[in-house]
Design a binder for these strands. Structure first.
Lengths: 331, 331
DNA sequence: TTTCTTTATGTAAACGCTTCCATATTATCA
DNA sequence: TGATAATATGGAAGCGTTTACATAAAGAAA
């Protein structure tokens, strides 16, 4: 069953059927009804490959939106840089394969421009995307896929990593090694990513009837982590293991512990999260949960293509599993 | 960059390029090398859509595996029937659209057969799939996608509905209507679906500083719910709203409440979960969260195709958002 | 040498859809 | 009323592949 047969039974041309299918305005009410009747009767579904092939003439622009903050970091030497670079690499290569034009722009720019109207789809990367941004863009009816960001109250497509599962795995690993005094050092919990990892840690500890203990850090503490470690040692004592909510924290923790003459992993095991490359070079090399960043970007593009070409309507949340990488910083 | 350009620069016909690309034997060594040189130089990648369109039928066999229990229910008149029928409809139509052959078999059958080796991919539907099943099949290196089932400890692709979000939405809705005494009646929490909905309910109530109260039901109670309602009324008092973890429970609750001369929704609001069709005919018509069942099946097939054709390696979890449908059983 | 195979390559027709362009119809205006 | 503009529809050319069929070249058999 194809468009041609539909056309024949509806007594119109294939062009007209296509127009009805795509909601183009140049069809009379009567014809539209006639075609729709046939369409419904046979429960017609457009062949995605054919549509995709035909439509390819059009320049599909995908704006990879990055907030000013992240963009600055992308240009500076930072871990964020590595993370998002990998994601963007995945985006660009997958886009190229599908002959889609990608442009990386700053979020602030696109929000001010009425350029929005020329865009076929948007990828919004990272934690700076807010509900307002999404709502604003949605008004234009432009498909969006969030990357490494999830906004629970909004039903919007997103690709994220499974922090809950990862944290849970790490915690179980430590427990399986006989460790019991495990603490979690994490970022602000209103960030969904940190929250997920936190939840995974807490619930796993509770499942094993162990007392979960967690400490929140802020940007100042990143400068100097001594006060935090000090506090932990005083109020909690020396933990057997520390699970940090990302790699930079983990490395900072190790550094600071060393200053306290506490050895990693002999005295305390440390596990990070993200799997950035520096972690491997670090001494001791960092045990971590690797987020498949390239895949994240790649999947986001594929999803966007699906949405655009199939008029896919149900938003989905795609979570990628992380990969546990055992290295030197933990037993 | 397409096959035609490759052909031109390699000084051969497009047919020949295609033959080289597909490893057909009817190409001389010399020509093959010539073409491959060009291919490598420009890092050519075949357009998937075009290929898909041109190939009339890819012989990918997908076994939709259904456990005996569910299969029995599919043949009998049950709500499970409706739910899984819709899912299977999505699977079959999407498969057909992609010219893939689908066969619905019973889980028990396939596990005993060495037929497994002839299969390109498997879809496992529903809550009866166990870790052992998956592990067994994985041994054969066959791609699997779980549908409406999630096994946290195993990194296996799955398509599920977002119970947490749905439950959370329902709870917020009730709270927004000024209701405070809200309880949750749910199934066994070791089923990930019920657990998710439970978590969504609990955490939302806590967010609003309300006391969450929940009751677990079992199959006997489904026969006669009087004891449970009795217990609730005695220990908790009359709730203002009841959120049930699926539609059948919700309807049973309403029925039983009516026997107690308690009116729905005047005295107590009731919300279900699933969005099965009977709920609409029910009196009062059921407020519920609709799981996009068709989409669930459809997405599962698409994911399986991706895994098979792209050799996609990172397993992902795809969650579909539910849709809140306000009807007569709630204010 | 002639005829018959075999092998390598090219030509062109699909695959199902979108969309530019042309045409036919109807409405609008002077 | 005739000229013009607006609107609805159809025809047909792509989109990038695959592949049946045709053809050319070369080798084998007579």
């Amino acid at each position: 069953m194809n468009i041609k047969e539909i056309a024949k039974t509806a007594n119109v041309s294939v062009a007209t059927v296509s127009r009805v299918l795509n909601g183009s305005s140049k069809v009379s009410e009567e014809t539209r009804r006639k075609v729709n009747d046939v369409l419904n009767k046979v429960n017609f579904k457009t062949d995605p490959s054919a549509r995709r092939l035909a439509i390819k003439k059009i320049e599909i622009k995908v704006f990879v939106i990055v907030s000013k903050r992240i963009n600055r970091q992308l240009n500076s030497d930072s871990v964020v840089r590595e993370f998002y670079s990998k994601v963007i690499e995945g985006i660009e290569q997958t886009a190229e394969l599908n002959k889609i034009h990608v442009e990386v722009v700053e979020l602030e720019d696109i929000l001010n421009e009425s350029k929005l109207k020329t865009v076929n789809g948007l990828l919004l990367i990272g934690g700076d995307t807010t509900i307002e941004h999404v709502k604003f863009i949605k008004k234009y009816g432009i498909p969006i896929v969030l990357v490494d960001q999830y906004i629970p109250t909004l039903k919007v497509d997103c690709v994220i990593s499974d922090g809950y599962d990862g944290a849970s795995y790490a915690t179980k690993y430590l427990i399986s090694k006989g460790l019991k005094k495990i603490i979690h050092i994490h970022g602000f919990l209103n960030h969904f990513g940190f929250k997920n990892r936190y939840d995974g840690f807490i619930s796993t500890m509770e499942n094993y009837k162990l007392l979960p203990k967690d400490y929140e850090y802020n940007d100042e503490i990143m400068e100097d982590m001594k006060p935090l470690i000090d506090k932990i040692l005083k109020t909690y004592g020396l933990p057997e293991a520390i699970f940090a909510s990302n790699d930079p924290i983990a490395m900072k923790v190790i550094e600071t512990l060393n200053n306290f003459r506490i050895r990693v992993p002999q005295d305390v095991s440390v596990i990070g999260f993200d799997g950035i490359e520096i972690g491997e070079k670090f001494n001791p090399s960092l045990t971590t949960l690797k987020v498949p960043m390239y895949e994240m970007g790649s999947l986001a593009v594929k999803r966007l293509i699906d949405i655009i070409t199939n008029h896919d309507v149900y938003p989905v949340r795609i979570s990628l599993f992380t990969e546990f990488i055992k290295r030197g910083s933990s037993i």
